[in-house]
């Protein structure tokens, strides 16, 4: 009997040790999968990766399904200690990556040994990077998703950001996996992180309440990212846009919706937005461009450009097709 117990204890101990220990969480590191869908009726928002494209590549470089749980690192500073052999990949905003102090490249899969220390420095351009592990981090989903939304205290390990000493379990790499090829994404196929982006915007919602002259002004002006930018939304600064309504009956807000409050300064609502609200909206930025916007910070510039529903639909499918057709390069 005592032998069985000690066996169980040993097993428990080894289970705890599979994965990573967070030795430094950095500024804001969050467990994310593709997002929480189907829980709007409880008032729960989507969450999920702010830059869905970089998230996609991190998982693909690890051979994962696209909805696999990874870490979103905001600005940098994350340090993990591996307790098992595994394969990881880091993508997104360029953060200096080291393994045991040695510089390593992002946008490729890396073999990690038990005991290795992975560190991500801070980025000067772009905001968020993604660290995926082959097989994914094993986090219990809440409301069907592991996506962390701090404001709602939902998802992740305990409804919040990663903390020092957190343990992130993942699958142990088998011998067969160990000999597997490693992959990288060709430099030409990697997204560029810049300080200025175009936000293609589908006109909709209360657009009829914005006079033509205001719409023209909206699409021809340059806006700066204000000091208020986060996963919930980006407040912009520039020429004020006026509508002929102050407030509306509270209604559902989609990803990318452009809300114009009374001061006329647009707010683009993103992953962690509230599900309903009462400010008039002129339309919504397409998802691909929301991912780009999420890599901007205070002072960076955006322009809005109108796009028809059909053109947005085409862009969505072209992008999907391009992603599928892009081949990874084997490098071992």
């Amino acid at each position: 009997m005592s032998k069985i117990i000690s066996c169980e204890q040993a097993q428990k101990k080894s289970l705890q040790q599979r994965g990573f220990v967070v030795s430094d969480p950095g500024i804001l590191s969050l467990i994310q999968d593709a997002g929480r869908f189907g829980a709007f009726n409880l008032g729960l928002t989507n969450g999920g990766p702010a830059d869905s494209l970089a998230f996609y590549w991190a998982n693909r470089l690890c051979g994962n399904a696209i909805n696999t749980t990874a870490i979103e690192i905001n600005l940098g500073g994350l340090q993990l200690k591996a307790q098992t052999d595994c394969i990881v990949a880091v993508t997104g905003a360029p953060m200096p990556l080291t393994v045991n102090g040695q510089a390593k490249a992002c946008w490729q899969s890396l073999l990690i040994k038990a005991g290795d220390t992975i560190h991500l420095g801070f980025t000067d351009v772009g905001v968020r990077s993604y660290l995926a592990v082959a097989g994914g981090f094993e986090v219990k989903p809440s409301f069907g998703s592991t996506a962390t939304v701090c404001r709602e205290s939902v998802g992740g390990l305990n409804g919040g950001k990663l903390l020092k000493h957190d343990v992130l379990p993942c699958q142990v790499l088998s011998k067969a996996d160990n000999s597997q090829k490693q992959w990288m994404l060709a430099e030409n196929d990697q997204p560029r992180y810049v300080n200025e982006v175009i936000l293609h915007t589908v006109i909709g919602y209360q657009q009829a309440h914005f006079p033509d002259i205001e719409k023209r002004s909206f699409f021809s002006s340059e806006y700066h990212i204000s000091q208020h930018w986060d996963r919930m939304g980006y407040r912009l600064q520039g020429r004020a846009i006026k509508s002929d309504v102050n407030g509306i009956l509270s209604e559902g807000i989609c990803y990318g919706a452009v809300q114009i409050p009374a001061d006329g300064q647009p707010i683009v609502l993103l992953n962690d937005r509230q599900t309903i609200g009462g400010y008039p909206k002129i339309g919504a930025v397409i998802s691909q461009d929301c991912a780009k916007l999420s890599q901007l910070r205070q002072g960076d510039k955006v322009h809005f450009e109108p796009i028809s529903m059909s053109a947005a639909d085409n862009m969505f499918h072209l992008n999907l097709r391009k992603l599928k057709q892009t081949q990874l390069i084997s490098y071992t």
Binding site: Y205, E251, Y255, A257, K281, S287, M309, F316
Partner: peptide, 9 residues
Amino acid sequence: EIAGESSLM
């Protein structure tokens, strides 16, 4: 009405 790329109102 149109709301966004993948949503109608």
